[in-house]
């Protein structure tokens, strides 16, 4: 039993064309930069944006099929949505908000109220049952939104940036609770986020999107180890190069070839961790095979380490200690040499 979606549509500048499936066994996170089309994809699954072509199927039942014109309206889809800014009804009490879905689906009011109260108890908000949403803190509102989405027992739970509106201190706590609810939820789960940490912590599988297209999918470990786009490489903080492999070397461009201890051949990605990149003031002795001169284009502190961006034939980021920086007197615009060992290059097919 699963969600299967093949969504193609254009909306303003966005051109969305992506295939997505979600199984019962996994929590899937849609990860991508702003404007990648994550939220639009989620809204398409919910039936709030029409497809130009493609389909959405839930447990084999067609919810929308552009070819046949079939469309099950949003209100008749078994979904629960947690919106980015929650969209709790400001004129209704917290209890009425949570009971709303059950009432809409025809449950008698006393029964809906009882179930809503149970849900609020479960998210630790029994004390706020009669309050209006604007009396609650951000974290509390998020939990009401979650309870409201879960209360009608939807088959598919959609969360759009569920933690984005929270401040950093609340976020960790709410994320833990969210993780627990996601784990115990018996249906299908899809989370949209632009935060890789959040994605890695909440989801079993990441679906990385850029410009309306799927760029990579896999477990958080797979995606971090083998990034397949500059966006993911930047998120993970590694150097990603692409080139043609040929028995122990990878040609990045006409002028530059790097040595790599790998047996791959053909179109490949090469990943080098910044900590494996060394900086030198002069051409390194012993002339290692992977050494280039370059110009420092950026220096930034990052948790006790310093990241130095070097432009050259092969642009690279090196991560060194602050002590090394002051010894070498590296500054923006300065000339340096970079080097790394061929055994520190990870190579995998593109």
């Amino acid at each position: 039993m699963s969600l299967e979606a093949n969504v193609r549509l254009t909306l303003g500048a966005l051109d969305l064309d992506i295939e997505l499936s979600v199984d019962e066994a996994e929590v899937v996170a849609l990860l991508g930069p702003n404007g990648a089309g994550k939220t639009t994809l989620l809204r398409a699954v919910a039936g709030l944006v029409p497809l130009t072509s493609g389909y959405v199927k839930l447990d084999g039942r067609v919810l929308e099929d552009a070819a046949s014109g079939k469309y099950v309206p949003t209100e008749r889809r078994s979904i629960g949505v947690v919106f980015q800014d929650y969209l709790l009804f400001p004129h209704l009490s917290v209890l009425a908000n949570v009971a709303f879905g059950m009432r809409s689906r025809g449950m008698p009011s006393h029964e809906a109220a009882e179930k809503a109260a149970q849900w609020l108890d479960r998210v630790g908000l029994s004390a706020y049952v009669q309050d209006k949403p604007d009396a609650l803190s951000g974290g509390q509102r998020q939990r009401v939104a979650l309870a409201r989405a879960l209360a009608p027992d939807p088959r598919l739970l959609l969360l759009d940036e569920p933690l984005a509106a929270l401040d950093v201190t609340t976020r960790a706590e709410v994320r833990r609770d969210l993780k627990r609810h996601l784990t115990t939820f018996p249906g299908l789960r899809l989370v949209v986020t632009h935060d890789p940490l959040e994605a890695a912590m909440l989801a079993d599988r990441l679906v990385v999107m850029e410009n309306g297209r799927l760029v990579q999918t896999g477990t958080p470990a797979e995606v971090t180890e083998r990034p397949r786009s500059q966006y993911v490489a930047d998120l993970v903080g590694v150097n990603l190069l692409r080139g043609q492999a040929d028995h122990g070397s990878v040609r990045i461009s006409d002028d530059s070839v790097i040595a790599a201890a790998a047996a791959e051949s053909g179109d490949v990605f090469a990943v080098i961790h910044p900590r494996a990149v060394a900086l030198h003031l002069r051409r390194p002795e012993g002339s290692p095979r992977n050494a280039w001169p370059g110009r420092v284009s950026g220096v930034e502190m990052l948790g006790g380490r310093v990241r130095v961006r070097v432009e050259g034939d092969v642009p690279l980021v090196a991560e060194v200690t602050p002590a090394a920086i002051s010894d070498m007197q590296v500054a923006e615009g300065g000339e340096v040499w970079v080097s790394f060992k061929s055994t520190d290059v990870g190579v995998y097919p593109a």
Binding site: T74, R76, L87, F89, H91, F100, A149, P152
Partner: peptide
């Protein structure tokens, strides 16, 4: 008014008339 409240109501299974009477009208109160 923020029409996304109406969308939120629809995802909760509210039919058009329910959305109108229970969400739209109170919000434009």
């Amino acid at each position: 008014m923020d029409r996304r409240y109406e969308e939120a109501a629809r995802t909760l299974g509210a039919k058009r008339w329910t959305v109108f009477t229970r969400v739209t009208l109170p919000l434009i109160g």
